[in-house]
Simulated assay, not measured.
Amino acid sequence: MSYDWQATLILLATLTVVTVTGNFLVKRIRAFDGMRDINREEDQRKIAQDKYPPIVASTRKIGGITNLVFYALVVPFIVTINSQPLWKILLDIVAILMVYDFFYYLTHRFVFHGKGYFRKIHGLHHQARKPTHIDAYYVHPLETFIGIALFMGSAALLGIFMGPFHVATLAVCVLVFQNLNVINHCHIRMDSFPGRTLSWISVKHANHHKDMQQGNYATITLLYDKVFGTLV
C-alpha cells in the first residue's frame, strides 16, 4: 500500500465542490428551504440555552481533529485515482457503508444504550426529545470521536483486504455518512419525493429520541434494526 497524497487532495476537493453545490441547490428549492427555516428557528431557541454552545463547539472541534488525522494518516493509503469498473465502485460503496452501519448498530445498541459510563455519555445527546439540525452536534465529544472512528476503521479495514478505493467511492461514502447523520436529526415533514424519504428517515430517528428505551439504532439504513427486531 502506498501513500497517495494526490488522490487524497482530489477527494477533499471533490467533497468541497459537491457540498457547496448541494447547499446552493437546496437553497433554491422552496420546500427544502422551508424546512431549513423551521430548523433554524428551533436551533436558535436551543443555542440560546447555556448548555448548547460549549457542547456543540467541543463536538465540532473533536470532529475536525479526528477527520484531520483520518485524511492525513489513513485515507492516503486506501484511496486511488486509478480507473476502476463501475460495478466495483458500487460494490465498495455498499460494503463500506453497510460494514460501518453494522458496527455502529452494535455500538449504539449495546454500548451507548447499555449500562454504565457510556450510557450516561449518550444520555447527553438524548436530552433532545424533539431533535432538530443542531442536535446532530449536541453530542458528547467522546461519542463523536467513537462514531467517526467507527467509520474510519470500517473503511481502513476493508481497504486492507479489498485494496485501495476509487476517489468516487470514498467521496460518496463520506457524503452519505456526514449528511445522513445530520438529516436524521433534522425536522423534516414533506410529502413529495425525495422529501418523503427524508421525512421517513427523520421520523424514525425522532422515535429513537423519545427516550433511552427505543430502537432504531442504525444510522445509514434501518436494515439491521429490521433483522434484529429493534425497528420502531
Rank of each mutant, 00 (worst) to 15 (best):
I81R: 07
N67C: 09
L68Y: 07
S83V: 00
I38Q: 14
L97S: 12
K27Q: 14
T66D: 06
R60C: 08
N39D: 14
R60E: 11
I93V: 15
W87C: 12
K88G: 01
G63L: 04
V79P: 03
F77Q: 05
I96F: 09
I55W: 06
L90P: 15
D37G: 02
V79W: 04
A95P: 07
I81W: 03
P85I: 07
I96R: 02
T80W: 03
F70T: 04
A31P: 00
Y52H: 13
A31Y: 00
A31I: 09
K46W: 11
P53Y: 02
F24N: 04
I96C: 10
R36Y: 07
L86G: 07
E41S: 02
F32R: 00
K51D: 12
G64P: 08
A31L: 06
I38C: 06
G34P: 10
D33V: 04
I93C: 15
K51Y: 07
F32L: 06
G34V: 08
I55D: 07
N39Y: 09
L86N: 08
F32W: 04
Y100T: 00
A95S: 13
V69D: 00
E41P: 00
P53H: 05
I96W: 05
N67D: 06
I78E: 03
L91C: 06
A72H: 01
P54V: 06
L86F: 09
R45N: 06
Y100D: 10
T66A: 11
V56P: 09
I47K: 04
